[in-house]
Amino acid sequence: MSYQGRINRTGGTRVKRALGVQAALEWAFRVEKAQLELPAPQDANEEGFGFGLEYVLLHRAALGCKIDGGQHKIGTYTHEDAEVIAATVAGMPDSLGGKRMAIRVAELARAGLTPDWMPGAVPRCVPVEVKRNQHGERAITVVVGTERVLSRGKWRTVDVLACPVTYVPHPQQIEAARRAYADWWQALGWVRDGLCEGGCLKDLELKPDMPRPDPWVRCR
């Protein structure tokens, strides 16, 4: 899907391009090369990082909905809407991950990627270690105890062996990947709502479309 192109005009009326929030982010950061201008670190006595949506909207209103991002793109032009999108992402509140989430959202958009939620991942029980030789591979065993057994009329002490196993990928890895996807999804929802409420986009219109909130759950 291409996000480039001119805005069409019909009878002098501006026709806005309608994009979902993920497509709009990719257009801003990947095509228009918008830069994420994060706020300066606060004093130790001040709280948190995030501006909150209200601050972002008031700040944009004070600027007349025009963001100057030329300092990062000498000799080139970044679309005004792309700068507005970048400014919105930069205002990510602490409750959604703050500066770290803002950077992640921008980096993924710039790369045209969706967070890896480990599709199709199913934990498999495998040996912790295997030994390979000319006869193939064999799971490594360890002594976990001893037992007395009667063999050929005599009592003998034998080692009790066990094969240490683990799960690959580990269930916690899968859970963490999908939790990170869900956090990203919530951040995109905040960006979408902020852009819609702000009403500062000149040539774009945000559609309600969102990526699936839980793509690992099969549709019934």
Rank of each mutant, 00 (worst) to 15 (best):
Y3K: 09
G5S: 07
R6H: 15
I7W: 00
I7C: 09
T13S: 13
R14M: 14
R14N: 10
K16C: 10
G20V: 05
F29A: 02
F29R: 04
K33I: 07
Q35H: 13
L38D: 07
L38C: 03
P39N: 10
D43H: 10
A44T: 08
A44Y: 06
E47S: 12
L53G: 11
V56G: 07
G64A: 14
G70I: 06
G70H: 08
Q71V: 11
D81L: 03
I85Q: 02
A87N: 12
V89Y: 02
V89L: 02
L96H: 09
G98Y: 09
R100I: 00
M101P: 00
I103K: 13
A106V: 02
R110K: 14
M118K: 12
P119R: 06
G120H: 09
E129N: 08
K131G: 00
R132P: 00
E137P: 02
T141H: 04
V144W: 04
G145A: 11
V149E: 09
R152V: 01
K154R: 11
T157H: 04
D159C: 03
C163K: 03
C163Q: 10
V168G: 10
P169C: 14
H170A: 15
A177P: 00
A180L: 07
D183P: 00
W184S: 04
W184V: 03
Q186D: 14
D193T: 10
G199E: 14
M210G: 07
P211F: 05
R212I: 02
D214G: 07
W216E: 11
R220H: 12
